[in-house]
């Protein structure tokens, strides 16, 4: 009796796995395998190699001749006979720290302005008015223009001698002599910010608009009937309700801003005031033949962004598993 019982148990367990589910799981594996493989080849492996390079003295011309050097590219110090300690490596490199501050300054300022302007534009687009579709189409234009092209366009508009911006500001009496917006140390960052805000506010506006459109209209009507001032309605009703959508958009933009490269490379080439982590890192990697050193810098940037990604995933946890359907 006992044996037959113990024999039948695993049997029923085997049976309980329906073949439909097995079929689906098997298919899912085959469907995912190519994508995961490709993704590993183009993202995972190169990332690991980059991190590896950052611990070697590999050079651009001799990719396989690098020796393991530990943290030398990040930070090392030697104590001189005089007792002075000399630090070297990326973490002791003032150019790197300048780039870090530039990146942070650029990201924080541009994303803040874009968020506020984006929300404003979204509020406008959320109204019913004639030609709304046209306006929405118009704000998509900056988004559609390649970054390089917009950098060139604005570079021309900001041109110190023949630029229309100088011309305009002169005509309005705001400046009394031409300003070299992109090459002047004091205004270079400002120029970059202007172009970035112009180019990416539409993206923010569209995401905000999608958030706004999810708010049921009757909430506004109820507020109107209660005679609540529109400004109060905005801060007490609209803002709390769009905040989740807004937060997601802000973090996306933030991640994007932290890795900015092309705009700065084209608009303000070689300006100390705007060089970001990506720009400095590529300079070392490719142009200055400090391949390993550049790898260390790109690895640091990766680490910073990884922290932000974790933040995003933590905030977006709710919709990530996305089990809206069974």
């Amino acid at each position: 009796m006992d044996t037959s019982l113990s024999l039948s148990k695993p049997n029923t367990k085997l049976k309980s796995v329906s073949s439909l589910r097995q079929q689906k799981l098997r298919a899912a594996m085959w469907f995912l395998a190519p994508m995961v493989t490709v993704l590993f080849c183009v993202a995972g492996w190169p990332l690991l190699r980059s991190i590896y390079f950052s611990f070697t003295d590999t050079s651009l011309t001799d990719l396989y001749g690098g020796q393991w050097v530990g943290f030398k590219n990040y930070l090392t110090w030697t104590t001189l006979s005089s007792g002075r300690t000399i630090f070297s490596g990326t973490l002791a490199d003032p150019t790197w720290w300048n780039a870090v501050w530039n990146t942070i300054k650029f990201s924080v300022v541009s994303v803040s302005i874009e968020t506020i302007l984006g929300l404003m534009v979204a509020l406008v687009l959320n109204q019913e008015f004639k030609g709304r579709g046209l306006v929405r189409a118009a704000i998509l234009i900056p988004w559609a223009i390649p970054t390089i092209v917009s950098a060139k366009m604005w570079g021309w508009m900001l041109n110190d001698q023949f630029g229309i911006i100088n011309h305009m500001l002169m005509a309005l009496g705001l400046i009394d002599s031409n300003v070299a917006w992109t090459s002047n140390i004091d205004t270079a960052m400002f120029s970059v910010l202007v172009v970035d805000v112009w180019k990416t506010t539409p993206f923010m506006a569209l995401l905000c608009l999608a958030g706004l459109q999810m708010i049921p209209r009757d909430i506004y009507e109820a507020a109107k009937i209660d005679g609540i001032h529109p400004v109060r309605v905005f801060f007490h009703v609209t803002l709390p309700l769009v905040r989740p959508a807004l937060m997601v958009a802000v973090i996306f933009r933030m991640l994007d801003a932290l890795r900015v490269f092309d705009l700065i490379y084209i608009l303000t080439p070689n300006s100390k005031a705007t060089k970001t982590m990506s720009v400095v890192s590529r300079e070392n990697l490719i142009e200055f033949d400090k391949f390993a050193y550049g790898s260390a810098q790109s690895t640091l940037l990766f680490a910073i962004i990884a922290i932000f990604v974790c933040l995003y995933i933590w905030l977006g946890k709710l919709n990530l598993n996305g089990d809206t359907q069974r």
């Binding site: 309980s16 796995v17 329906s18 073949s19 439909l20 079929q23």
Partner: peptide
């Protein structure tokens, strides 16, 4: 999928059939 027990059509087990 059936967690436990048996389903038959005309005496033929259907548990494992798609």
């Amino acid at each position: 999928e059936i967690s436990s027990g048996e389903l038959t059509f005309d005496g033929e087990s259907m548990n494992n059939k798609v």
